[in-house]
Design a protein around this nucleic acid. Structure first.
Lengths: 212, 212
DNA sequence: AACGCCTTGTTATATATTTGACATTCTTTC
DNA sequence: GAAAGAATGTCAAATATATAACAAGGCGTT
């Protein structure tokens, strides 16, 4: 399956399709047209059809799309065909919040352990997952076939974790620290830069006030 | 100041400029050229110059940009010239994590209260901020001039909160629940859809494996 | 104080993305 | 079973975004 030349913009819309299709599935809706989906999701029908056609003709003329099939296909495209072992570094509030999200687990992101440097939290069990000493991080990741590391440390600790990750077999980082990690190898990184997002809120607030 | 016709893509890069300029400031670097900034930040120098020029000529030919001035200018553009009163709805791990981030406060996002429906957390103080009963939400928001509401509830509780918000004078929502809120009026919404983001990680993971 | 270098602001070009249009094909109804 | 209607897949046009090129003008050094 070669999904070549698919733009990142398309990829970032896929989870939204996945989410809405799940909702339709849960409501026992069997079929959906791009036009109906467009009304729900807010993209144009044209865009929806074009997005989906990047990956194959999932629909049928005169009928639309079978909800269950399309949901499964998009799941496949997103890589939800097998579980992924993950660990969390940083067992503060945020790390604990992520550890408690059952939806990640349900989608196949299996939390194997958490890590921290703080003796006060080492040894704790969060949602049945133990917080281990950061000393054990590299060996644990390699031995347990961990593929994704969630970085929930402070800004200052994050690059250090990233450096450690590069010495393991882990392939991807989900970074919540407000810093852009410097990585040599071809490790996948997705950032959740909360501050960046909050600043766009204040931008739009300012704009809406200026407009008055 | 009319920032008309500025694309959202540009706006979403501004916080990143802001972040890097802060770093330069902290390191006592007085001037920076678009070329140098390009190396740090990963955008082309051309894009940096074009982005900045949407808002005015902050630089000087033959010299570059004054770091402090540019930092302040971007802060102004982002609306960081005055504080914003905010509240958090949902005092679980995530809500508590956000309540504890001092960087939000430092930028002017002033947490006035937290709200929850769970009697077990009502009355708690997180980082000196009290968790109040959700009953008091609407009156509190109106009386304390709250402009931004962070929604940290479960998926199912979020729309309910959004409905309440629409009956108050609040103007913006920062939504962490995995759902697209339905809003009638012109309320500003920024979503942090964690699952969507995580699914792009698994997509890229799958891709990199397929490429082998 | 003059010359060369540097870097911006800005225009032009190239690329990427979105929207629109329509022929084709399947569904459904009569 | 034929005809009308509906919705896809796809191509073309329009729009948006990013890159490149360069003229103009300040900086710094001699």
């Amino acid at each position: 399956m070669k999904d070549k030349n698919i733009s990142v913009a398309v990829i970032r819309r896929l989870p939204k399709y996945h989410r809405y299709l799940k909702e339709l599935l849960d409501n026992d809706i069997k079929r959906i047209s791009s036009k109906e989906l467009s009304k729900m999701i807010g993209f144009t029908a044209s865009q929806i059809r074009q997005d989906l056609n990047n990956f194959g003709g999932f629909g049928q003329q005169g009928y639309g799309y079978n909800v269950e099939d399309l949901y499964n296909e998009i799941g496949k495209i997103l890589g939800l065909t097998r579980p992924y072992n993950v660990v969390i570094v940083g067992a503060g509030n945020l790390g604990q919040a992520l550890a408690n999200y059952s939806s990640f687990d349900r989608l196949g992101f299996k939390l194997q352990a958490m890590f921290d440097v703080n003796p006060k939290v080492i040894g704790l069990k969060i949602n049945n997952v133990e917080v281990l000493d950061m000393d054990k991080f590299e060996s644990f990741v390699n031995e347990h076939n961990v593929e994704i590391v969630y970085i929930c440390t402070s800004r200052d600790g994050a690059q250090d974790v990233a450096d450690k990750i590069q010495r393991t077999s882990a392939k991807a980082i989900w970074n919540f620290a407000p810093v852009d990690l410097k990585l040599k190898s071809n490790i996948i990184v997705e950032n959740i830069h909360l501050i960046d997002n909050l600043l766009t809120v204040s931008y739009f607030l300012k704009e809406s006030n200026d407009a008055l």
